[in-house]
Design a protein around this nucleic acid. Structure first.
Length: 918
DNA sequence: ATAGGGTTAG
C-alpha cells in the first residue's frame, strides 16, 4: 500500500522520464493507441515542464515540442473519436512553450547564432494544431510568434512574414465577427512588434510601411474603441525611434508632432522612453542644434522628476542619447561635463537610476579615440577602474571599454602608441587573472592590439611580439567565443608582416593558414576579405615579387572557391593585381594590366557583377601606362579613360579618379593646356565633386609657371566654397601652388607678387576664413624668389618671416611648419645681402639656429647651403666676416660637411677683406 | 507577449 502510494506521486523528473520512455516511443505506444489516462499524463507532463524551463531551457524546449508533436499525431489519428478527448487544451500550455522558444531564440541571436526552430516552421505547427482542434490560439499566441521572428528569421523578410500573418488574422476575424472571441482580434501589441521588425529590417521601404501600420492601428481603434487596439507608449516610442533609424526626411519635426499627438490622445505627459527615443532621433539625425535641444529635454525631465515623480525620470539610456548628440557635434568636453554632472546629481538625490552607465563612458572613450587623444581615453579608463575598486559595481569597465582604449592607441599619433597599447593589454591580463570581470580579452581585443602594432611607427619592432601572442593564444585552446584568432586576426598579421617588409614570413604564415583553415572541420575558413587585405598589403609593399605573389593568390582564390569557400575574387581582389602593375617596373606591365582589365570586363559581361571594374580599376590601368616611363604614357592612359567612358558599368557615377590619374600623367609631361582640356571635359560630364582634380589642375598650371591660370583655379575653388557648393575650404597647399607659379614664371618682380600672396594667406588664416596659414613651403618659395631677385633690401622681411614660421612650428608642433635647411640658408643670405639690416649678432644668431636644424638633410644639402651662405657673407659689407666665416667652418665640422673648392674660395674672400682692413 | 544603448576589420 505504502509502496503504491509512493509510486503514484513520483518526482516530476521521474514522472517525465517514464512518460518519455513509454509514450514517446512509438514501438511501445503506436500512434492512435493512447488511452485517456495516458493522454492526461501527457498533458500533465507539459504542465510539469514549467519547472525546468527556466534552467535547461533548450532541453526542456525540445521535449515540449516532442510532446506536442506526439499529441498532434494522436489527435490526427483519432479524429473521429475526438470528442472523447478534452480539447482544445488550455492555451497557456502552448504559450509556455512558445514563450520559451522566443526567449531561447533571442539568447541565441545575441551570441550570433540562429536557433534551429524558425518562427515560420513553428507557425506552421501552430496552424496544424489549430486545424485538428488541439489548441485554439489567440492574438497573444501570434504576438509571441511575431516577436520570435526578430531572432529566427532573416531580418529582411521577417516583417513580410509578420504582415502575411496579420493579414490572415484580420481576415479570419473579419469573416466571423459574431462568433469570434474578442482575444483573437489583431491588437496593439502585435502591431508594435511588427513595427519593430520593420525598424530592424534594413529595408528601404520600412519607414513608409511603419507609418501605414500606425495609421491602420489608429483606424481600427477609431472604429472599435477597444483598449487593446489603442496606440500606446510602446507604439509612439517605436515610431519615434524609427524616424531616426530608418531615415525619415523630416525626422525631428515628425517626432515633435508624434509627442504632441501622444499627449493629446492619452492625456498623459510623455514618459521616459518617449523622451529618450526623441533624444536618440536627435542623435542619429544629427539635426542642427541637436545637442542643445537634447540637453533641454533632459533638463525638463530632471525638473519634472525633481520631487520623485517617476514617469519622466531620465535613466542611463537617456543620458547616453544626450551624450551622443554632443559627441556627434564634436563637443567632447561638454559631453564629459554632462556625465560628471549626472554623477553628482545622482549622489545629491541619492538616486542610482540617474547615473550614466558604462555605455556612456565607452562612447566618451571612443570619441577620444577618434580625436586622437589616447592619453585621455586611458585616463577615463583609469577613473573607471579606481571607482570600481572603491566598490562601484555599476561602473565596472567591460570588454568594450578596454577595446576602445586599445583602439584609441591604435589611432593615436603618439610616438610610443604601440608600447602604450601593450601596457594596457598587460594590465588587462593581470586583472583578468585576478578574477576581475570584463577584462577577459576577446577576439576583437587581439585584433585591435595587432592593429596597434601595424600602425606603430616601427611595425618591424613588433613582429616578434605579435607572433608570440599569436602562438600563445593559439595553444591555449580557449573556447571559440572569445580570445582566438579569426580571419580578421590573420588579416592583421598579414598587414603587419607586409608593413614590416617580412614578405617571406607573410607567405609562410599564409600557407599555414590556408592549410589549417581548409582542413576538415576547421573552425575558421579563408574568406575573400582575408585574401583582399593580404593582396592589397603586398600590392602596396613595393616588393619585387609582389606581382607574382598576388597573381598566385588570385589563382588560389579561384581554386578554393571551386571547393566551396567564400573566396571568389571580386573587384577589390583584381584591383590589387592592377595596383601591383601600376607600381611595377616590368616592361610588360601595361599589357598585362590591360589584359587583366579585359578579363574583368569579360567576367562582368558573363554576369559576375562582383568583378565589374570600378573607377579604381581603370585608374590603376591608367597609372600603369603613366608610370611605365614611355614617351606616349599619358596618351595611352587617356585611351584607357576613353575606353572606360564608352564601356563602363553605370554604377560608376564618379569618373574623377580616372580623369585625375590621366591629368596627373599629362601634368608630369608639362602639358598644362591638355590638363585644362581634360578638366573642362570632366566638369561638363561628371556632376560629382573631387578636390584632388582641382589640385591636379592647380599643380599643372603652377608647374607650367603660369600664375594667372593657377590663380584662376584657386579663385574658382574659393567661389565654390563661399557659395557652399563644396565643403572643403582652400588650403595652404593650394595657395602655395600660386606662389610657386610666380616663382617658376621667372618674371621680373615675382617676389613682390609672392610677398603680397603670403600676406594675404596670413590675414585669411588669422581671420579664420581658410586654413591657409603660410607653411615652410610658402616661405621657401618667397625666400627663393627674393634671393633670385638680387635685391639687397629684404633682410628684415626674411628675418621676420622666419621668426613667424618658427613660432607657428613651436605652437603647433606640426611638421609642415618646420623650417628646413634651405629656408634658413636663404633667410641668412637675404639678411647678409641687406647692408642696412644685417649685423654680426643677427647673422651669428641665425647661423647657430641653422646648426640646430637636425636631420640627415645636412648630408645632402649641407655643402650647397653653406657655400651659398659663405658666398653671400663674402659679398656683404659687414665688418666681422672672418668671425662669421669661422662660425660657418665650425658648423660644417659639427655637421660632417666637407668643404670643396668653392667653400675654400668664399672662405678666403671673407678673410682677405678682413685682412685688408686690418 | 510589445520599445530604446557602446567597439574592430580593404
Amino acid at each position: 500500500m505504502t509502496r503504491t502510494k509512493r509510486q503514484a506521486t513520483p518526482s516530476v523528473s521521474k514522472n517525465w522520464a517514464m512518460i518519455k520512455a513509454q509514450l514517446l516511443n512509438k514501438a511501445h505506444s503506436p500512434v492512435g493507441s493512447i488511452s485517456r489516462p495516458q493522454w492526461n499524463q501527457l498533458v500533465e507532463a507539459l504542465h510539469n515542464l514549467k519547472a525546468p524551463l527556466g534552467k535547461n531551457l533548450y532541453r526542456a524546449l525540445v521535449e515540449a515540442f516532442a510532446l506536442l508533436d506526439r499529441m498532434h499525431e494522436e489527435v490526427t489519428e483519432k479524429k473521429s473519436a475526438m470528442p472523447r478527448l478534452p480539447l482544445p487544451l488550455p492555451t497557456v500550455l502552448l504559450h509556455l512553450t512558445i514563450d520559451s522558444w522566443r526567449r531561447q531564440a533571442a539568447e541565441f541571436a545575441t551570441k550570433g547564432k540562429v536557433f534551429p526552430i524558425s518562427a515560420k516552421s513553428l507557425l506552421q505547427k501552430v496552424e496544424h494544431f489549430t486545424e485538428t482542434g488541439l489548441f485554439d490560439p489567440s492574438a497573444k499566441t501570434y504576438g509571441m510568434l511575431v516577436e520570435g521572428m526578430a531572432s529566427t528569421e532573416d531580418k529582411h523578410n521577417a516583417p513580410i512574414l509578420a504582415e502575411e500573418l496579420l493579414e490572415r488574422m484580420t481576415k479570419q476575424y473579419g469573416q466571423d465577427p459574431a462568433g469570434r472571441k474578442l482575444e483573437c482580434a489583431p491588437n496593439t501589441v502585435i502591431v508594435n512588434s511588427i513595427i519593430n521588425l520593420w525598424i530592424k529590417s534594413g529595408r528601404s521601404d520600412s519607414m513608409d510601411a511603419i507609418e501605414r501600420k500606425f495609421q491602420k492601428l489608429k483606424d481600427w481603434y477609431r472604429f472599435s474603441g477597444r483598449d487593446d487596439q489603442k496606440p500606446n507608449a510602446y507604439t509612439y516610442s517605436s515610431l519615434i525611434s524609427a524616424l531616426g533609424r530608418c531615415g525619415h526626411h523630416q525626422a525631428v519635426e515628425r517626432a515633435e508632432t508624434l509627442l504632441r499627438e501622444y499627449e493629446a490622445s492619452t492625456g498623459k505627459q510623455p514618459c521616459t522612453v518617449l523622451y529618450t527615443s526623441f533624444c536618440q532621433t536627435l542623435a542619429t539625425t544629427n539635426a542642427p542644434g541637436a545637442a542643445d535641444r537634447a540637453q533641454a529635454v533632459l533638463n525638463e525631465m530632471l525638473f519634472r522628476s525633481r520631487h520623485g515623480e517617476d514617469m519622466a525620470r531620465p535613466n542611463s539610456y537617456t543620458i547616453l542619447a544626450v551624450v551622443s548628440t554632443y559627441l556627434k557635434e564634436g563637443r567632447i568636453d561638454e559631453a564629459e561635463v554632462l556625465v560628471r554632472n549626472m554623477e553628482d546629481l545622482s549622489r545629491q538625490r541619492a538616486d542610482d537610476g540617474l547615473r550614466p552607465g558604462i555605455f556612456c563612458y565607452n562612447s566618451l572613450i571612443h570619441a577620444c579615440a577618434k580625436n586622437g587623444n589616447a592619453e585621455h581615453a586611458e585616463s577615463i579608463l583609469n577613473h573607471l577602474l579606481d571607482s570600481a575598486e572603491s566598490g562601484n559595481s555599476i561602473l565596472q569597465p567591460n570588454i568594450v571599454t578596454w577595446n576602445n582604449v586599445l583602439h584609441a592607441w591604435a589611432k593615436s599619433k603618439h610616438p610610443a602608441r604601440a608600447q602604450r597599447a601593450s601596457n594596457v593589454f598587460k594590465r588587462m591580463r593581470l586583472l583578468d587573472r585576478a578574477g576581475i570581470s570584463g577584462a577577459s580579452a576577446d577576439t576583437r581585443t587581439l585584433n585591435i592590439l595587432i592593429d596597434c602594432y601595424v600602425n606603430s611607427p616601427n611595425p618591424k619592432a613588433f613582429v616578434h611580439q605579435s607572433i608570440e601572442l599569436f602562438e600563445s593564444v593559439k595553444s591555449q585552446g580557449v573556447d571559440s567565443s572569445s580570445g582566438i584568432f579569426d580571419p580578421v586576426s590573420y588579416r592583421g598579421m598579414m598587414d603587419l608582416l607586409c608593413k614590416a617588409g617580412e614578405f617571406d614570413r607573410a607567405l609562410r604564415l599564409h600557407k599555414r593558414y590556408i592549410e589549417k583553415s581548409t582542413a576538415p572541420e576547421a573552425p575558421l575558413q579563408p574568406d575573400r576579405a582575408y585574401f583582399n587585405v593580404l593582396m592589397s598589403g603586398l600590392a602596396r609593399s613595393g616588393w619585387e615579387k609582389a606581382v607574382e605573389s598576388v597573381e598566385a593568390m588570385l589563382t588560389e582564390m579561384h581554386s578554393l572557391a571551386k571547393l566551396g569557400y567564400n573566396t571568389h575574387p571580386d573587384v577589390v581582389s583584381y584591383n590589387s593585381l592592377l595596383n601591383c602593375f601600376a607600381t611595377s617596373s616590368q616592361v610588360n606591365a601595361p599589357s598585362k594590366a590591360f589584359s587583366a582589365l579585359r578579363r574583368m570586363e569579360q567576367l562582368w559581361a558573363n554576369g559576375d557583377l562582383s568583378a565589374a571594374p570600378d573607377a579604381s580599376s581603370y585608374s590603376a590601368v591608367c597609372a600603369t601606362w603613366a608610370n611605365a616611363g614611355l614617351a606616349e604614357g599619358a596618351e595611352k592612359a587617356e585611351e584607357v579613360l576613353r575606353h572606360m567612358l564608352l564601356h563602363r558599368d553605370q554604377k560608376i557615377q564618379s569618373t574623377s579618379q580616372v580623369f585625375n590619374t590621366v591629368m596627373v600623367a599629362y601634368a608630369r609631361q608639362g602639358d598644362a593646356p591638355k590638363v585644362q582640356k581634360l578638366f573642362d571635359e570632366w566638369l561638363e560630364t561628371d556632376n560629382t565633386y573631387d578636390s584632388r582634380i582641382y589640385v591636379t589642375l592647380l599643380q599643372a598650371w603652377s608647374k607650367a609657371g603660369n600664375p594667372e591660370s593657377t590663380a584662376s583655379v584657386l579663385y574658382e575653388l574659393i567661389r565654390l566654397f563661399d557659395s557652399a557648393a563644396i565643403r572643403n575650404p582652400p588650403t595652404t597647399q593650394m595657395f602655395n601652388a600660386v606662389l610657386q607659379a610666380w616663382l617658376r614664371s621667372g618674371r621680373k618682380h615675382a617676389e613682390v607678387q609672392i610677398k603680397a600672396g603670403v600676406d594675404e594667406m596670413s590675414s585669411l588664416a588669422t581671420s579664420g576664413r581658410f586654413p591657409c596659414a603660410p607653411d615652410a613651403l610658402t616661405y621657401s618659395t618667397l625666400f627663393s624668389a627674393c634671393v633670385r631677385s638680387g635685391r639687397d633690401d629684404l633682410g628684415e622681411l626674411a628675418h621676420n618671416g622666419l621668426l613667424e614660421l618658427k613660432s607657428r612650428f613651436v605652437t603647433t608642433r606640426n611638421p609642415m611648419y618646420r623650417p628646413d635647411l634651405r629656408i634658413f640658408a636663404e633667410a641668412i643670405m637675404l639678411v647678409a645681402m641687406d647692408d642696412k639690416y644685417s649685423t654680426k649678432d643677427i647673422l651669428s644668431q641665425l647661423l647657430l639656429e641653422l646648426n640646430a636644424v637636425n636631420g640627415t638633410i645636412w648630408k645632402k644639402q649641407g655643402q650647397i647651403a653653406m657655400n651659398r651662405i659663405l658666398a653671400a657673407i663674402s659679398r656683404s659689407t659687414i665688418n666681422e666676416k672672418e668671425v662669421l666665416a669661422q662660425l660657418g667652418v665650425e658648423i660644417m665640422r659639427a655637421q660632417n660637411v666637407s668643404p670643396d673648392e668653392s667653400t675654400r674660395k668664399f672662405l678666403a674672400r671673407c678673410c682677405n677683406k678682413e685682412g685688408q682692413q686690418a
